[in-house]
Amino acid sequence: MSKLQEVFKNKSGNVLNVYCTAGYPHLESTLQIIDTLQKNGADIIELGMPYSDPLADGPVIQQSSLVALENGMTIATLFSQLKNLPSSTGDKEAAIILMGYMNPVLQYGFEKFCKDAAEVGVSGLILPDLPEYEYETEYGAIIKKCGLDFIFLVTPETSEERVRRLDLLSSGFLYAVSSSSTTGNEKDFNAVEKYLERLKSLNLKNPILVGFGIKDKETFNTACKYANGAIIGTAYIKALEGAANVEQATKKFLAGILK
């Protein structure tokens, strides 16, 4: 069982997945952010691999990617940082997953990427522009061989038949985009509740985490009513923006969500 799957074994509700772009705000922030997040209540840490053309992301995460790239972040650098992740600190350890786009991964070498990710303790992958057909015919087998979970996205526009198919292909969890939009876009959250209720009624194989539009205690709690937990990205990046002390900003942000 992967560390990601263990998270859901130990906790069926209120699972908090926090996204942060690797190399943001500083090249060396990654380990400190992971440490602080996991000590202060994050169950899953989703590290974004910065890309020059992140077309599923809104302006805030785009900007953080740009900063991270300017800071010199690469996949190789991220892996060498994760190698130095202190093994078991005695505190609760979060599962680490990577989110990114196909092009940098293909250049790194897809198989090498999966192997190296698994080696440095990554549990799962989110690659929003890796489609189902290519996953099934080419990449899925490599991901599985390396023991990584792969998480597909579903949206309010995804048909029930397709949700079920993507659920079967996914492991770890299923990422429910709360509205068809790029990250960080605020839409009426109430309109989303019906969709989440529908998803819940499908009794899927995987736990469901809700992403996009989760920004505070209220939206987190609402998401948790219908799903196993939620993903926060844009709001956290905003909290880090210009923060003098990354650790304090992170603690303060998590306290606002969880307390």
């Binding site: 599923a56 929003p128 522009d129 057909y133 290519e134 579903v154 949206t155 526009e157 068809s180």
Partner: peptide
């Protein structure tokens, strides 16, 4: 049928564009 010319093409799109 999947949009490939030799090894190039396809539809590498996020789920939000799928429909």
């Amino acid at each position: 049928e999947h949009g490939y010319y030799g090894s190039f093409g396809g539809a590498y799109i996020p789920e939000m564009l799928q429909r």
